[in-house]
């Protein structure tokens, strides 16, 4: 594959956002990954050309970070957190179930090319354990049955919506969002805060405690302590 003119222009745009162009390298690698499905030799060359680096320098950076794939990715990235909290609360069982369903192990793509399977580390969502991610969107408090059902729905081409984010659109679209090149229009999806994020306000309401941020509304809302 080759890098399109549009992508080359976008790489230049990303580089222009920083006082020193090389700072854009990680976002740039996300962007080539969104076009190529992995960090391809052409993608590395395009980044190197944009920044005036050697391809060896760019490849050395790329290989340090686990999010960059060294071979073409499956259509959907499936991550199951198997760090301690998630693993114990059910993540190990979730991983076993989805890995069997996909017919692929860690860092493997399912034979049909649909699922790129990865055991992932803590996703800053332990409150929501066990956690699965599809194209890096959260599927919180999942079970083996629910997780397998998500894969089934994806395989059937159905619309699948994250528990704290938008509809999943595939690995490459997610990588474009992460690169930050443009607005994907999905900011307002997924609700403002879920039940677990609202734990403070629920516990405070039960005890008659109002906002403590010192805003005007807080004063009328009641005392802080």
């Amino acid at each position: 594959m080759s890098i399109s003119e549009q992508t080359r222009a976008e790489l230049v745009e990303l580089a222009g956002r920083y006082p020193v162009a090389r700072s854009a390298l990680l976002p740039m690698l996300h962007l080539v990954q969104s076009e190529e499905g992995y960090v391809s030799p052409e993608g590395i060359a395009a980044c190197a050309a944009t920044l005036g680096l050697s391809t060896a320098e760019v490849a050395a950076v790329s290989s340090f970070y686990t999010m960059y794939k060294r071979r073409p990715a499956g259509k959907h990235h499936i991550g199951v957190c198997t760090n301690t909290m998630c693993a114990l609360l059910g993540g190990d069982a979730v991983w076993q179930a989805v890995s069997e369903r996909a017919g692929a192990g860690h860092d493997e793509v399912s034979p049909d090319g649909l699922f790129d399977m990865e055991r992932i580390e803590c996703q800053a969502a332990c409150t929501h354990a066990p956690v699965m991610t599809v194209d890096w969107e959260f599927f919180d408090q999942t079970t083996p049955e629910q997780a397998v059902a998500v894969l089934d729905q994806l395989a059937a081409g159905a619309e699948v919506v994250s528990t704290r984010g938008p509809v999943v659109r595939g690995f490459r679209a997610a990588e474009r969002t992460i690169s930050g090149i443009d607005d994907d229009g999905l900011t307002d999806e997924g609700g403002h805060a879920d039940e677990l994020m609202l734990a403070t306000l629920r516990a405070a309401a039960e005890r008659g405690i109002g906002p403590a941020d010192g805003s005007a509304a807080a004063t009328s809302g009641g005392p802080a302590a």
Binding site: H192, L198, L201, I209, A212, D213, A225
Partner: peptide, 18 residues
């Protein structure tokens, strides 16, 4: 010591992130 909704004070409002 107590609950102190400061950073979280308005997370129950639908447009809290805007």
């Amino acid at each position: 010591m107590t609950l102190t909704p400061v950073l979280t004070a308005h997370w129950d409002e639908a447009d809290c992130y805007t």
